[in-house]
């Protein structure tokens, strides 16, 4: 009865291959601009990984993929996919400029669970992001490929119909608490250039 197993496998391949043999570059401390318009201040360097499957997000990591992952979205336009288009059997997730915070979170949830992983929203509330009115959310993710339990935090805002967001996830026991303060600081420093 394996009607959907192929779908799960394709999704898993996309996720895993996203981290395979990807070139890594250093992102230095200090002021950095992501895309054209999202400016952040970093307290300490990050590693940027080339992961076309997750484009248009920039993919950053402290420990290396697939341990921890920071997705940075800068200026996602109406109807634009938040990941690379996958096989026809996989659902694609696109941003709509009319989305409310819960719909944006649902969109990220859909993307993160395309491989059969399990997502649970822990908290969603208003927060300033990029100098604008936005939202912050926390989530728990159980990764299908290895059953690892991850914690995550996200920030987002819609500015002039474009989405700006950060999405960080890491194993909940050691890595997430280790790097969360750095992500929170980065989110607080974010500014959208007009």
């Amino acid at each position: 009865m394996r009607t959907h197993r192929g779908t799960l496998v394709a999704a898993t391949l996309v996720v895993v291959l996203a981290g395979c043999a990807a070139p890594v570059t250093k992102v230095d401390s200090g002021e950095q601009t992501v895309g054209d318009r999202l400016q952040v201040s970093l307290e300490g360097p990050w590693n940027q990984v080339r992961a076309p499957a997750l484009a248009p997000a920039q993919v950053w990591t402290m420990e290396g993929l697939p341990l921890d992952r920071l997705l940075v979205y800068s200026g996602i336009k109406n109807e634009q996919l938040i990941h690379a288009e996958g096989p026809a059997s996989l659902k694609n997730f696109a941003f709509r400029s009319t989305m409310q915070p819960d719909e944006i979170v649902a969109m990220f949830e859909g993307m993160l669970t395309r491989d059969g992983s399990s997502f649970k929203l822990v908290k969603l509330g208003p927060a300033s992001f990029g100098g604008a009115k936005g939202f912050r959310f926390e989530f728990a993710l159980t990764r299908r490929v290895d059953n690892v339990q991850l914690s995550g935090v996200g920030y987002g805002t819609v500015s002039n119909g474009e989405l700006f967001a950060l999405l960080y996830q890491a194993p909940r026991l050691a890595f997430f608490p280790r790097h969360q303060p750095r992500v929170e600081q980065m989110a607080r420093s974010a500014r959208i250039k007009t």
Binding site: R2, R5, G6, L8, V9, T12, L13, V16, G116, R143, R144, V145, D146, N147
Partner: peptide
């Protein structure tokens, strides 16, 4: 899938 490592990815 997922429980036997990458060898199971082609399921």
């Amino acid at each position: 899938v997922g429980a036997v490592g990458q060898v199971g990815l082609y399921a």
